[in-house]
Structures are given as structure tokens and as C-alpha cells.
Simulated assay, not measured.
Amino acid sequence: MARRRMVYEGKAKILYEGPEPGTLIQYFKDDATAFNAQKHDVIDGKGVLNNRISEHIMTALTSIGVPNHFIRRINMREQLIRACEIIPLEVVVRNVAAGSLSKRLGIEEGTPLPRPIIEFYYKDDALGDPMVTEEHIVAFNWASQQDIDDIISLALRVNDFLSGLFTGVGIRLVDFKIECGRIWDGDYQRIIVADEISPDSCRLWDIKTGQKLDKDVFRRDLGSLADAYTEVARRLGILPEGGNGKRGPKLVH
């Protein structure tokens, strides 16, 4: 196999140069991190599950007209994606109070919010990804006001879709994070959803029991992260019924 050129390595993924201009290969690692990588472990099979779950969601978003970087899955750990200029923001959509929102505002975790709340965080590990306002974003030229409007529109469409998708399989979408990028079609610029959408980037609670099925299992030492992610994949129909992941994820092709 020809040696590939690595473009970028993050905490959970590696990007390699793609086979064609304007493409990248996104490789999903088994690494699990929390608290800005202060807590770290390697969870066997996590990358496989996140690859397939993100593929499932991105494909569905494409089918309803939400633009994103996903092209196709290459294998169990890799996707072919469109290269884009990543906007240095994490876009968080909250439906239920949890995590930092509960801590900042003293709202009891699990409290439904009156409407979805969108927050922006500047992507900088050294600074701890600080929360920023639209004023900061425009002032420091991270994105234009039109970009922000497009990002908010995309984020709300993704929220509507994911809320319905997960409710249909007995899961509450508490909150989630997306990243966005810019692509150019000729002289025309578009904003698209990039990175991934998986239990790494969503808070997912069982509707009946409140059981956490996301990275909070790792953050808070609540049990097996692989089992939680496997349950999400099973409910979405990516794993066969009865698949428990005990011997590694057995995924439907």
C-alpha cells in the first residue's frame, strides 16, 4: 500500500491526503479523551463505531439536503470526505440543560430548555476552547455575519433531524456539537457540516431510564463506553439486533 501523507492529527481522528484533488481520508481512532485531553484512554472498537454512526447520520443529512463533507465510507475506520476550510468554531446546540450550561447557570441537569440554544466556542486547545459571542467571531474575522447566519440555520436543521432520528429509537438528544467549513463551487461559497456526528459529539440519554449513551460515560466513569456506543449503533440499525460488541463491533455492511 502506498504511503499516505498525513494532513492533520487530532484527539480522535487523523486526516490523510485523499486520492483526488479536493478530498481527504478521515481515519477514526480508538482514543477517548475528556477535559481537553487531560483524561485519555484507548477504547477498542470505538473508532469503528463512530465511523459507522457518523456515516449513517451524514448520509441521512445529505438525503434531506443538509450539505456536509461526507462522500463515502472506505472501510471500517475510514471515510472519504470533501476538503474544506474549517471555521475555527465549535457550534453547540442545546435542548436540555447539561454539562457546562448547568454548571455556569446553576440549572439542574435534565431541565428541558424553552427552545434550542446555540453557543459558539473558539477552537483552541491551549485556551480550553473558550465560549465566544457573535461579536467576537465577526470582530476577529473567524467568520462573517452571513457565515454565522448560515451556520445557525444549518445547526437548527441538524437539530430538528437528529431530535426526530433519536426520539424514534428511544433516545433523547440532549445537546450536540458540530463544526462547519467553507467550500467553493466556482466563485460561490457554501457553508457545510464537517468533522463528525457521533456519540463523541452528542449527549444522548435513554428516554425511559435516563441512561447515558455518550462520552459522559467516559468522562464520569459510568461504565463501558464501547457498550454505550454499541447500543446507539444497534438502535440506529447499524448493528444487528442482539449485537452486544463483546467481541468487538460486528457491523452491518
Rank of each mutant, 00 (worst) to 15 (best):
V252N: 13
K215N: 06
E196K: 08
V174W: 03
L173H: 10
A233V: 08
L251T: 10
G128K: 12
A139D: 08
D31I: 07
G243L: 00
G164S: 01
G245M: 06
K177C: 12
A126R: 15
G99S: 14
W184M: 15
P114C: 09
P130A: 10
P199L: 11
F28D: 01
K246N: 11
H56G: 02
T62C: 09
I57E: 01
E9R: 04
Y121M: 12
D195E: 11
E55K: 07
W142C: 01
K11N: 09
P249E: 00
G47E: 00
P19T: 05
V169N: 00
F218Q: 04
I107F: 14
V66I: 15
T59H: 12
I152H: 05
S201M: 06
T167E: 10
L239N: 03
V132R: 08
W205N: 04
G245V: 12
P130N: 07
I178W: 06
N244L: 10
R247F: 11
I43Q: 13
V91P: 03
T59L: 14
R72A: 13
E85Y: 04
L165A: 01
I81C: 11
C202W: 00
E78T: 00
V193M: 02
P116Q: 08
S198D: 10
L89T: 03
N68T: 03
R182K: 15
R94E: 03
I117P: 06
T59V: 12
Y229M: 01
D206H: 06
K123C: 06
I117R: 10
A2M: 11
L113W: 08
L236A: 04
V217A: 03
D147W: 00
K39R: 15
V42K: 13
D206Y: 01
L89E: 05
D44Y: 14
A155C: 14
E90V: 09
S100A: 13
V48L: 01
L101H: 15
G110D: 04
E17S: 09
V252S: 13
G210T: 05
L15W: 07
L89H: 05
K39I: 08
D195W: 05
D125A: 04
I238C: 03
G242H: 13
K212V: 07
K29T: 11
K11L: 04
R182C: 12
D214L: 08
E231S: 06
S63G: 12
I178N: 04
G128W: 08
S198P: 12
L49I: 03
G106H: 10
E17I: 05
L113V: 05
L162W: 03
L204M: 10
E20H: 14
L162C: 15
N95K: 07
